[in-house]
Simulated assay, not measured.
Amino acid sequence: MPRGRALVTLRDAAEYITKLPKAEHDAPEWQAAMEALLLVAESGGPTMFARIGVMRALNRQVERVFIPERKETHWGKRKLARDQ
């Protein structure tokens, strides 16, 4: 968030979205985040939907890359008692 702000409540998220520039406001990620916020606010839906929508919209510029060397897998390292 700009200037170290944090979105704590659903109202904070809604105010942040409404203050976005028109071009950014019309992005599909922000539209989905607004729909999720409305679902939670009006219908009492799960708040996790709103959180996921806003987080995806905030991080839309970040490219997710899978790096297989980052973590070793545990598959095949376990020895069973019957195999010893």
Rank of each mutant, 00 (worst) to 15 (best):
R5Q: 14
R5N: 07
A6L: 11
A6I: 14
L7M: 14
L7I: 15
L7W: 10
V8L: 12
T9G: 04
T9V: 12
T9L: 02
L10G: 02
L10R: 04
L10V: 09
L10P: 00
L10E: 04
L10I: 12
L10M: 09
R11I: 12
R11V: 15
D12Q: 00
D12H: 13
D12S: 01
D12L: 05
A13C: 15
A13M: 15
A13H: 06
A14G: 02
A14I: 11
A14F: 13
A14C: 03
E15C: 11
Y16R: 04
Y16A: 04
I17T: 06
I17D: 00
T18R: 14
T18H: 15
T18S: 15
K19P: 05
K19H: 15
L20R: 08
L20N: 08
L20A: 08
P21D: 07
P21Q: 01
P21T: 02
K22F: 11
K22N: 08
K22G: 00
K22P: 02
K22C: 01
A23W: 13
A23F: 12
E24C: 02
E24I: 14
E24M: 10
E24F: 05
E24P: 05
H25F: 15
D26C: 08
D26L: 12
D26H: 11
D26P: 01
A27T: 01
A27H: 06
A27E: 04
A27S: 01
P28T: 07
P28F: 08
E29M: 11
E29D: 14
E29V: 14
E29Q: 13
W30G: 00
W30Q: 00
W30F: 04
Q31E: 04
Q31A: 05
Q31N: 04
Q31F: 04
A32S: 03
A32F: 08
A33Q: 03
A33M: 08
A33I: 04
A33R: 05
A33N: 02
M34A: 11
M34S: 09
M34C: 07
E35M: 06
E35W: 01
E35H: 06
A36R: 14
A36Y: 09
L37F: 08
L37S: 01
L37R: 06
L38K: 12
L38F: 13
L38S: 10
L38H: 11
L39W: 07
L39G: 09
